[in-house]
Design a protein around this nucleic acid. Sequence first.
DNA 1: GAGAGATTGTTGTCGCGTCAACCACTAGGC
DNA 2: GCCTAGTGGTTGACGCGACAACAATCTCTC
Lengths: 159, 159
Amino acid sequence: MTDDRWLDETQQQAWRALLVFVNRGLPQLERTLKEHDLLVVHYSILVALSDAPDDTMRLTELADAANLSQSRLTHRLRTMIDRGHVEIAADADDGRGKNATLTAAGRQLLERVAPIHADDVRCLVFDHLDGAETAALANAMSKVARTLCDHDAFTETGC
Amino acid sequence: MTDDRWLDETQQQAWRALLVFVNRGLPQLERTLKEHDLLVVHYSILVALSDAPDDTMRLTELADAANLSQSRLTHRLRTMIDRGHVEIAADADDGRGKNATLTAAGRQLLERVAPIHADDVRCLVFDHLDGAETAALANAMSKVARTLCDHDAFTETGC
DNA sequence: GAGAGATTGTTGTCGCGTCAACCACTAGGC
DNA sequence: GCCTAGTGGTTGACGCGACAACAATCTCTC
């Protein structure tokens, strides 16, 4: 049971904790945002757009920035457009592409829920960590995230 | 923008990386297990049962051990029973309760996919970290996880 | 300039998870 | 004995996400 085919003690502890975070922590964030008729996905989309120049982004970039598949983005975007938080316009240069823009109402919504969500995130994670621990967490997870974003295509050969 | 109502630089970095992990990393684990007709949830249930004495657990405990709601457990359990990986029996002492037991086929399945899944997890997370980083990650996430498991009821008042 | 192939985005289907409602049983008064 | 809570577990409905198929456009090559 202590092959290198298995996780060692520390790895197991880290992995189990991550699963607890995912399966118990994240649903709490969803619940809080749902009180404002939002999903965390919606929030991510709003943030990505608000970070972009002119509050505008090509859909593919937006999907990438928010860690979404194109399909998922399209689905979520539909309701956000209906509610007037986002607008869509065909790209002038590339007939295939479309640009999403944050509307004034969308920005207003974001500014209203952002503090609430930030509170929630701190309460869930960072209130339990001191500066050094937070830095260590950021360092470790950033290394993990980097490779996930890099060979995004994910060549599964041997990892 | 640098209120204490917001996340600081390091916190943001950690949080963004966690979101990348959740939205890009976890789906990869699902994909790999799906080749064996399993979800990560299934795997968690198998592991929890195999860790229990007599490979048997009360459903409520099982749900807790696998970080699941009772409803979700019931839904997943149905197919696992159909496939003969788990058995269910009424509890003798408490007429309301039921016990889930891992069958021989279930244990066999677990032993077959466990190395594959472990490989996947290491490849996703731990291959990118040295010993100190892994320990730091385990420490930080464990602190987060602890409070999630404790006041599981989650008294949302002020966090 | 006409295909072949790649890129961008949408649509529909299907399985999973949440939530609320529900049934079955136990426990604690009286 | 009942009658009310409370607990353990199930069910059904509904919304979301993955996936595959599709349409539309660009690009490259000849």
